[in-house]
């Protein structure tokens, strides 16, 4: 895991930075893993614009918002492979996008390498656990395990 990050205009350990050219947009990593993550954040962001914003608007705005959500609502919704796939892709992309965002924030604010490593490991383990939990539920959920009470 790289603890340093190459940025096009950063000079590193507290040395004065060269003046930034603000007409050139935000800093982009020069190459390697960080450049791929930079690209991933933007591509997944475009997909999440549909998946996450769509999910948020659909669930919170029409006909009473989340007040209509209960077991029956989810059972009906997940009867459709379309919504199961939507939710699983949303789970996956949002976790990676969000945890990489947290990692980026630790690069800015957590300066001790050991502390930063520990913080990032907590995020990775939590993210992976939630990914596994969410995947198991969204794939295996079967409402017929709980027949309706007569």
């Amino acid at each position: 895991m790289a603890t340093t990050i190459e940025r096009s205009t950063t000079s590193g350990d507290g040395a004065p930075r060269p003046p930034r050219d603000y007409t050139r947009g935000s800093e982009r990593p020069v190459g390697g893993f960080e450049l791929w993550m930079w690209l991933f954040m933007r591509i997944s962001g475009i997909v999440l614009l549909v998946l996450a914003l769509g999910h948020t608007l659909i669930m919170h705005l029409p006909s009473g918002g989340v007040d209509r959500v209960d077991f029956g609502f989810v059972a009906t919704r997940w009867a459709s492979p379309f919504w199961r796939s939507w939710d699983w892709m949303l789970l996956t992309l949002a976790l990676i996008h969000g945890i990489n965002g947290l990692r980026n924030i630790t690069l800015d604010y957590v300066r001790k390498p050991g502390t930063r490593f520990a913080a990032n490991m907590v995020f990775y383990v939590l993210g992976f656990t939630l990914f596994v939990l969410g995947t198991i539920i969204v794939v295996t959920f079967d409402p017929s395990n709980w027949p309706p009470v007569a």
């Binding site: 077991f71 989810v74 789970l91 939630l130 939990l133 969410g134 198991i136 539920i137 959920f141």
Partner: peptide, 8 residues
């Protein structure tokens, strides 16, 4: 993710 997983 946790609150939704409770549906299981």
């Amino acid at each position: 993710v946790v609150d939704t997983a409770v549906i299981g």
